[in-house]
Structures are given as C-alpha cells and as structure tokens.
C-alpha cells in the first residue's frame, strides 16, 4: 500500500517550526518510512502532486499569496494542522495589526533607515503579493483540524502528534510537551 503523504509550508512564519521538525534528529529516518513528502520546502516540491493525508501549516496569513497557498492546502489535505503560534494566533507578524497598513508600507519601502528608493514609490510589481489589512491566524481563513502551540512546538511534540495521527491512535502529549513557561 502506498504511504500516506504529508505536505508542509511556511506562510508568514520564520521557518522555526520547520527547523523544529528537523530537530526530531534520526527519527526523520523513521518518518520517511512512515510517509512520503509532497509539496514542502523539505523536498522543494512546488505544487501538489496528489491528495495528502496531513498538511502542516507554519505561520499565519499576512498576504494574498499566503491565503492562496493555505486554500490550496485545504483543498488537497485531509487534515490540516496549525503548527506554532504564528499559524495559531498570528504571532510576531501580527504585531503590525495595530499599525495602519499604509505606515507599514511606508516603513518598508520609503522611510525605513536602510531603504534606498530614490523614486520614492511603493513598488507595484505583481510578483510582490499584496499585504492583507492585517495578519490573520489560519483558522480564520480555512477550517483547521488541529493546533500544535509553541514557538516553536518542540520536536517531540511534533513527532508524537504525527505518529499518533498516522497510526490512528489518540494523541498523548504529556504536560512537558505542551507547557511553555
């Protein structure tokens, strides 16, 4: 029987959650025995090749491309998991939610101390995704099935959750894996 497939992505995140996934160390060999990776930065597959069992989402939605990717994940994955605090709550990127969008653009492209922009224009290249009015947690945009909190969630948390899901067993996360103080 073909192995179930897993896809991952980092939206408005820092890749820290992906690094944490790599932190499962040699268990990654076991993981590869359990699953195949589809669209993911891990294998650099850009587009979905088929239906996936699990999608891991790092980061919230700060721009239109994030929304597109997230909707694409929802379409192709049976189970979506918000991994980490940015996906779950917006996290650090959501600090901009109290600042008017225009000020964010101006700081990034016009007024920032390291900006060199002699024409003084905010770029309108379609390659640069438009920013959303604020940073949204993933579950406001699509249905999310599970949440793994943490910044990032520890490797063991990710491992336990994935193995439980793939082997169709209840997730057993001991207190040490979900406490963050």
């Amino acid at each position: 029987m073909a192995k179930p497939k897993v896809a991952t992505t980092s939206l408005a995140g820092c890749f820290g959650c992906h690094m944490s996934l790599l932190d499962i160390d040699d268990r990654i060999l076991k993981l590869v025995e359990l699953v195949d990776f589809d669209k993911s930065p891990v294998d650099d597959i850009k587009e979905f090749t088929g239906r996936c069992a699990i999608g891991l989402i790092e980061g919230g939605c700060c721009n239109e491309e994030n929304v597109r990717v997230l909707q694409d994940f929802r379409k192709h994955c049976d189970i979506l998991i918000s991994v980490g605090d940015c996906a779950t709550m917006g996290g650090i990127p959501a600090l901009r939610n109290n600042i008017p969008l225009e000020e964010c653009y101006e700081e990034a492209y016009l007024n920032g101390p390291s900006v060199h922009n002699p024409k003084g224009r905010i770029p309108d290249d379609p390659e640069l995704p438009l920013l959303l009015d604020k940073v949204y947690p993933c579950h406001e945009v699509v249905k999310i099935d599970y949440y793994l909190p943490g910044c990032p969630p520890p490797a063991d948390t990710l491992w336990e959750a994935l193995v439980a899901l793939l082997s169709n067993k209840p997730v057993n996360l001991p207190y040490e894996l979900i406490k963050y103080d």
Binding site: L130, L132, Y136, E140
Partner: peptide
C-alpha cells in the same frame, strides 16, 4: 465541518490595492 467563514478576501485586500495602486493577481 463546523468552520465559520468570517474572512473576506476582498475586504482584506482593499487597502493594499489602494496603496500599491494595482489589483490583486491572485484574487
């Protein structure tokens, strides 16, 4: 599935479209 769609992509992009001066290509 119990999902509550509150997100409105049109409303979320309106401001940026005005600032940048172009329409969304994704939506």
């Amino acid at each position: 599935d119990g999902f509550r769609p509150t997100f409105d992509i049109g409303a979320a992009l309106g401001e940026a479209q005005a600032i940048v001066g172009r329409r969304s290509v994704h939506f």
